[in-house]
Nucleic acid binder design. Sequence first.
DNA 1: ACTAATTGTAACCGAATTAGTTACAATTAG
DNA 2: CTAATTGTAACTAATTCGGTTACAATTAGT
Lengths: 146, 146
Amino acid sequence: MSGNSHFTVALHILTLLAKTGQDDTVITSDGIADSVRTNPVFVRRLLGLLKKGRLVSVQRGSAANWRLSRLPENISLLDVYEAVQAEPLFEMHHSTPNPSCPIGCGIQPALQTFYAQAEAALKQELARSNIGEVLAETLTHKPVSS
Amino acid sequence: MSGNSHFTVALHILTLLAKTGQDDTVITSDGIADSVRTNPVFVRRLLGLLKKGRLVSVQRGSAANWRLSRLPENISLLDVYEAVQAEPLFEMHHSTPNPSCPIGCGIQPALQTFYAQAEAALKQELARSNIGEVLAETLTHKPVSS
DNA sequence: ACTAATTGTAACCGAATTAGTTACAATTAG
DNA sequence: CTAATTGTAACTAATTCGGTTACAATTAGT
């Protein structure tokens, strides 16, 4: 699995949008970047993927604002995973194995079937939670000074 | 997930050792590298992890030979995953989120709980298959020239 | 004991990937 | 018109991945 933070940051973004949606406050890629503690361009790249996945929409221009396209309860972690995760769960070999070896020949198709089952199990679990739940769980952890 | 091929190559190695164990033929890190189509040092690094995980053992020295430590049926894909996978399934943020933001403050502990569930589901599925099954499935794919 | 083969490991390298940065045209509210 | 922001491209630094070289330690066979 790609050692990147896309899924985590995407969930952070959507949870934040769930909150600003509740509070009816305005938020830009700059404001999001401030919460994530990263740069606005990275945030916009992820927002682009989330927009393509129909999970968010944007009011562009001078009074810009990002919103969820659906209720937080109707955005599953699987929706998010599929929107931002390009790579398969498990990578294959870098070089194709030796085709004249009985194992090298058949290992990739064999692993594909096992990997597909594993990925299906993961996705099934991801489908069971949603952004509303993540927001609720997030808010149980209070900020430092109250 | 970590964009590396460790898990795949480890499974390839163990499947190959299941085969050489059946055939009672000798195999070295060089022979394994030839099937995987990589370099022997990379193979030995993985063999080191698998040995630490008690999945393989080695006859060292001039008549070297690698063997499975257990029957292929008693090595689950989860055993392999845990032997070679150092990183968690999903990475957290690179920089810790803004602690003065209600979301930034609570998102990491929240995600940890959801990620733990997802990882548990994945592991449960991986525990359901073993190297014996991977070998059987691999051998159903015949080499090019017979 | 000596030789030959192999493991275990360290050090280094190039390629690829990740996120950060700068820049700027396109969009839009006021 | 102006000011703010998005969308995107181009470039960069840091990190990671696997490949390479090298060599001491181990061991079977003679």
